[in-house]
Design a protein around this nucleic acid. Structure first.
Lengths: 121, 121
DNA sequence: TCACAAATGAAAATGGTTTTCATTTCCATG
DNA sequence: CATGGAAATGAAAACCATTTTCATTTGTGA
């Protein structure tokens, strides 16, 4: 197992808590930090599985990492500019639980995302 | 420029209007259609820019294409055996619409998937 | 100091997607 | 019918983010 390199988290914070692995890597290089791309990826993965950061996808498929508040939430994503808003998913939680138990499923989780065009786009 | 190959659209329809380029390609091959992967990608891109299909991303970054407009459904997926059940998403539709309009978003779509362990697993 | 686990990173592998380019298919015109 | 150019096609190569491999370094407890 590998633990997160703290400089990665601090760089992500400094980047506004919103950057791709490649961007974090380039940023650290530009600042003279000695680190390998592999370590950046591993640290980000570890931060994700520890729920310290959230991962989502740009339109081109590149993963972007973002510091997030603790509670489980969903995203409203703009198809135009990629802007995202964290949203509550109360209704979804109930829906998922209901449907799952109707079909006898246990140990249930879910994903949900809403996308559209934001007012600016 | 290239126009969409109609067999690509028809295959996407047959797939339930929800598949990746690779899946459409494999499906067409399995059905004996002679087509290249390049053409599948080009056709899907063209369908997207014509707003006939929508594109979004799986968690692993793979692009999935979906017919917009046609009735869509969601999936209940077993983490154990991969079995999937198609489900209605009435509650979700409303939730997505409400949340989106609260934030001034237009042209709204959504994804949602429930996963868990089916009775057999 | 010694030994062993964890961390690191360079390089190679992976895999979806895009680009290149030579070839084939269409189709309007003479 | 030609025939000439535009559009479509697809095999192979290029691309690029991400993951894996593996040899090396670092840290730590005995």
């Amino acid at each position: 197992m590998s633990r997160s390199n703290p400089r990665v988290l601090s760089t992500l914070e400094r980047a506004g808590g919103f950057a791709s692995a490649q961007e974090v890597y380039r940023l650290m290089q530009r600042e003279g930090e000695s680190i390998g791309l592999t370590t950046v990826y591993r640290s980000l993965q570890s931060l994700v599985s520890d729920k310290i950061v959230d991962v989502l996808r740009r339109d081109d498929g590149e993963a972007i990492y973002r510091m997030c508040g603790g509670a489980h939430h969903h995203h409203l994503v703009c198809k135009g500019c990629g802007d995202t808003v964290e949203i509550e998913g109360g209704a979804i939680e109930k829906w998922a639980k209901t449907i799952a138990s109707e079909h006898g499923f246990k140990d249930v989780g879910h994903t949900a995302e809403i996308f559209g065009l934001c007012p600016k786009c």
